[in-house]
Write a protein that binds this DNA or RNA. Structure first.
Lengths: 122, 122
DNA sequence: TCATTAATGCAACAGTGTTGCAAATTAAAT
DNA sequence: ATTTAATTTGCAACACTGTTGCATTAATGA
């Protein structure tokens, strides 16, 4: 099954150094397609472990490429959201660890720091 | 200016052990008022430093009481979102520290761990 | 009382995300 | 190659979150 939309969206996300929102993906797709198609394609790409979702500080989903996830996503890395340029980037260098009290079963982490990124603060 | 709505919403949030969404606040208000009024009241309560916003894993805003913020919010604490009961709670015991590389100016942190809370996993 | 300010309601709008159904496209099987 | 099945796409409609403008009402202060 060679879905052109799927290939293009995947390429867009993989080759982007910032996480892309649905809106940004829609704009960057030269081959215009329906909003719903993009949503469904993103769902598939997530289910297949190619991309992961980041909730930005304004509640909008952004999508970034996975590095080394197949089925089980492990995105314990930190995300940074720039309030100037609006970019969201994955900072994979840092591995944060939390020691919650007994009873909590942590399945996912959504860690988004916001502020000014190096590019905008330079 | 003694706004009854403001007092009631503030009371709701302060006396709740979980963070409340706009929808939940609307339901719990016996004195029904317009959606817009609730949004505006929440904005005011945030500006005055009584409550803070948490973006849940689905991108919906939830609101919880502040402890010791006046103007400058400092919510470096961890939030936990339960996938079973949907509750969002503030875990103020843990103070996470990150050392980002040079150039990043961190202004806010949004740390939401998701999984199963102690009540639902018991 | 009168003027000013704040609070509320209403309508409208933009945006995100989902669902159902039909049409088109692709893959598979005979 | 023709038919069948599965997948993909588009369209319409919907629910929900959140915002803005404007008019109305309520509260404050002179």
């Amino acid at each position: 099954m060679k879905s052109l939309t799927k290939i293009q969206i995947k390429e867009l996300i993989v080759h982007s150094n910032i996480a892309l929102s649905h809106q940004e993906i829609s704009k960057r797709l030269e081959r215009q397609c329906d909003r719903v198609t993009i949503y469904r394609t993103l769902d598939k790409l997530m289910a297949e472990g190619f991309i992961h979702r980041i909730i930005d500080v304004d509640g909008v989903s952004k999508f970034a490429a996975c590095h080394g996830c197949t089925k089980n996503h492990h995105h314990q890395h930190v995300h940074f959201s720039c309030s100037v340029c609006g970019s969201v980037t994955c900072i994979e260098e840092i591995e944060p660890g939390f020691s919650l009290s007994e009873g909590y079963k942590v399945q996912e982490m959504n860690i988004t720091l916001s502020g000014v990124c190096p590019v905008c603060s330079a």
